[in-house]
Write a protein that binds this DNA or RNA. Structure first.
Length: 426
RNA sequence: GCGGGCGUAGCUCAAUUGGUUAGAGCACCGGGUUGUGGUCCCGGGGGUUGUGGGUUCAAGUCCCAUCGCUCGCCCCA
């Protein structure tokens, strides 16, 4: 009876739930994340990108200045707080602003171009959904210091290569558009607003609000009525400066040359203010509403906005959770060797043998308690490939019994030859 | 932030129009086997039905609130 003490409270109190929109990454899921990050890192390296990391929080100003104060990300989704020193701090909602800040902070403008790869958590206070979390993770690359359209092509090609490496490229569509240069954008914005004003009363409520804040976003509205109005709207392509048009043509020709398929989407708009010229996203229809798995564009004004010299830049970010939903199970870890002491006398030897084998590169599981039967049972559950049994008989001879757990065949081997004898089980 | 759907054991699911002690498979633990795993057989633990109120003689089932997930909008990776 004394052994049936129950924990005082088996229930999980509400506060022990993870915070809304956050998630524990248990081993199976962590393995998928790791597969995404490792493939991306490896491929990005082939394109010359070196990994770097910025802090996950910055002065709030870093994001306010870079993302623009009309974006939802800045106006309602930032995790901001005042720290004990009175500083206004924000958990990063995206990666590019921090990288641009780091370029300025570290004086990297002296060694352009720089090419960075990064991976890590981002934070946005949004309503959670499949593929949309409050803490989520991104991979990304940034190419800073190259103004030529060749950079845009290479950056997109690198993204495509990563998706190909992960086996998901053929389930995605690359959409691409140009947001033009500032001159084109201002001109078009005026023309577009003039056109839309005439239909103001018929626009959706959302779009009426966008009319002041970010009229280009109306082009991307999903509202049926909006879409009818937008269908007749003047086209941005008719209002691009020739320089902006030539730039975009060079980008698409580069993609053509590489055989990278894409769909021109004149309605594709970026939410963050720092984008201009090339904008693109890879989407996977099967993911539903949150189907963009990788997106980015050119941000020639960003570094200057951070207080650095005028510096062109382009990059993208990919949602690790979203990409992870598309990939298959990564290969399982190598099967371990189980070291099983028979009787208490053998435990020290077992510990030493396990350590020796691990140094030799084997994955080794050491049962922590129980008789032989229990330990083998556990070894089986761990998918062990073989067991090393150490009992009185064996110890007396300086040997161990090796059991092949797949075939059940066992043999005796001198302790000194264990590594060699076990090598076929690696 | 807006609108809809769903929450029963660790997992996947049952439970008649509201009606006995909320069941099953898998998983877990123990025994059959204290120097031999998987298969098999036997047994066991585990649920205040997400949480809190309400209606009712009676609530897993109906109502309200709340939390979480989910679908769409919004936003975006």
């Amino acid at each position: 009876m004394a052994s049936t003490i129950k924990p005082a409270d088996k229930r999980i109190p509400a506060p022990l739930q993870p915070v809304r929109g956050t998630h524990d990454l248990l081993p199976a899921e962590a393995a998928r994340h790791r597969a995404v990050v490792e493939s991306a890192r490896e491929v990005a390296q082939r394109y010359g990108y070196r990994e770097m990391a910025t802090p996950i929080f910055e002065f709030s100003d870093v994001f306010r200045r870079s993302l623009g104060d009309t974006s939802d990300v800045v106006t309602k989704e930032m995790y901001s707080f005042t720290d004990k020193g009175g500083e206004e701090i924000t958990l990063r909602p995206e990666g590019t602003a921090g990288v641009a800040r780091a370029v300025v902070s570290n004086g990297l403008s002296q060694e352009l171009p720089v090419k960075f790869f990064y991976a890590g958590p981002m934070f946005r206070y949004e309503r959670p959904q499949k593929g949309r979390l409050r803490q989520f993770h991104q991979i990304g690359i940034e190419l800073i210091g190259v103004a030529q359209p060749l950079a845009d092509v290479e950056v997109i090609a690198c993204g495509a290569a990563i998706l190909r490496e992960l086996g998901v490229l053929d389930r995605t569509v690359l959409e691409i558009n140009t947001l033009g240069d500032p001159e084109s954008r201002q001109a078009y914005r005026r023309v577009l607003v003039d056109y839309l004003e005439a239909y103001r009363e018929r626009l959706s409520e959302d779009s009426r609000a966008r009319l002041e804040r970010n009229p280009l976003r109306i082009l991307d509205s999903k509202d049926e009525g909006d879409r009818r109005i937008v269908a007749e709207a003047p086209l941005y392509s008719d209002h691009l400066t020739s320089a902006a048009r030539d730039f975009f043509t060079a980008v698409t020709r580069g993609l053509d040359a590489l055989g990278i398929g894409y769909v021109l989407n004149p309605r594709l708009v970026r939410g963050l203010d720092y984008y201009g010229h090339t904008a693109f996203e890879f989407t996977a229809e099967e993911l539903g509403a949150q189907k963009t798995i990788m997106a980015g564009g050119r941000y020639d004004g960003l570094v200057a906005e951070m207080g650095g010299p005028p510096t062109p830049g382009i990059g993208w970010a990919g949602g690790i959770e979203r990409i992870a939903m598309l990939i298959g199970d990564p290969p399982p870890p190598p099967r371990p060797i189980a070291v099983v002491p028979v009787g208490a006398a053998a435990e020290q030897t077992a510990l030493a043998v396990a350590d020796r084998l691990r140094r030799a590169g084997f994955a080794v599981e050491l049962g922590y308690s129980g008789n032989v039967g229990k330990r083998l049972k556990r070894a089986n559950k761990l998918n062990a490939r073989a067991a090393v049994l150490l009992g009185e008989d064996e110890l007396a001879k300086g040997a161990a019994t090796l059991r092949d757990l797949d075939s059940g065949v066992q043999e005796e081997a001198p302790l000194s030859s264990l590594e060699e004898r076990l090598s076929r089980f690696r």
